[in-house]
Design a protein around this nucleic acid. Structure first.
Lengths: 160, 160
DNA sequence: CAAATTCCTGTTATAAGATAACATTGCACC
DNA sequence: GGTGCAATGTTATCTTATAACAGGAATTTG
């Protein structure tokens, strides 16, 4: 379980058993790939693991550097392709405001209309399940981006 | 008046008296700058006019090219600064998904929590007044981005 | 099993988007 | 009319992203 109680503080912003986040997410990723009939190859898997190291968005070039160090290709398309794969299959998300990527932390089966809370203090990003705001009739929405930037509870405390 | 009835199709997607859009927006911009005590200088004004030519997002470099042709500076900071000014003062918005900018089309006094409808058919963008989706307690939101990509009514018709 | 096909990984090269740092001009105010 | 600040412009550089192509591994098909 990775999605917090929608009325409370997202777990990403609080101390938690992060090793569990990671192992749950990896297990979930395996399952999802199996179901979708797509291949979680070594670069892709490793890319996801790298994203999972923190609830912090990483730029494609940050990821790339890690991959390069670990013996994978070191040119931009390597990272962009792995990240593209993860995003396409719902294993990661792109944060548009930051041109960066985070691992997906939704619980399995949970509706996938995520919103992101970006803390400008600590740089962490929490993913929450948010409904879309009401939009006018007629326009057919295919994808939506909902991103809020501000201060998480801890950073509000630190600021005060 | 530039914001559509929230339950109907946004005017941006339909034929309308665009000259009015432009003159209203420019008049509104003057007023806003006066109130805020900031200067709508020639480059800034011209940048806004360029954005206002269509309800289509423009990249900074597209704007820059136009400015350059018209005798203004032709280096990126010229465009980025003018666009930055417009965005800061609520006269334009940045569309994160597109790395592009649109003129603001809100009615004066209207609450400014805009959402954007981006048509992938015709490339037009409509700005609507949307409330934020419900977010968890505790996180203090300072800025929010709500962008939906899909098909406007006309383009749905054309596709069928 | 071998050939054919498809998908994946990697490369080179380049495009597109954005900003830091500094010089110069002009406007605002005393 | 000089002082100070805001705005414009430049050069240079940085970051982010993709197109186009070559080689290799996995999967399918006969």
């Amino acid at each position: 379980m990775s999605i917090p109680d929608p009325s409370g503080t997202p777990r990403e912003f609080e101390p938690h058993d992060h090793a569990h986040c990671v192992s749950d997410a990896m297990a979930s990723a395996e399952r999802i790939c199996a179901e979708l009939g797509v291949r979680l190859t070594p670069v892709r898997r490793r890319t996801l693991e790298i994203l999972l190291e923190g609830h912090r968005p990483m730029g494609a070039y940050d990821v790339l550097e890690r991959l390069g160090e670990e013996g994978y290709g070191s040119k931009p398309p390597v990272a962009y392709r792995a990240l593209g794969f993860l995003v396409e299959n719902g294993l990661a998300h792109r944060i548009e405001r930051l041109n960066a990527f985070v691992a997906c932390s939704r619980a399995r089966g949970q509706s996938h209309a995520p919103a992101f809370l970006i803390c400008r203090g600590c740089g962490m990003v929490a993913e929450i399940a948010a409904g879309l705001p009401e939009l006018p009739e007629g326009f057919r929405v295919e994808k939506a981006t909902v991103e809020a930037e501000g201060l998480c509870v801890s950073c509000q405390g630190a600021a005060a």
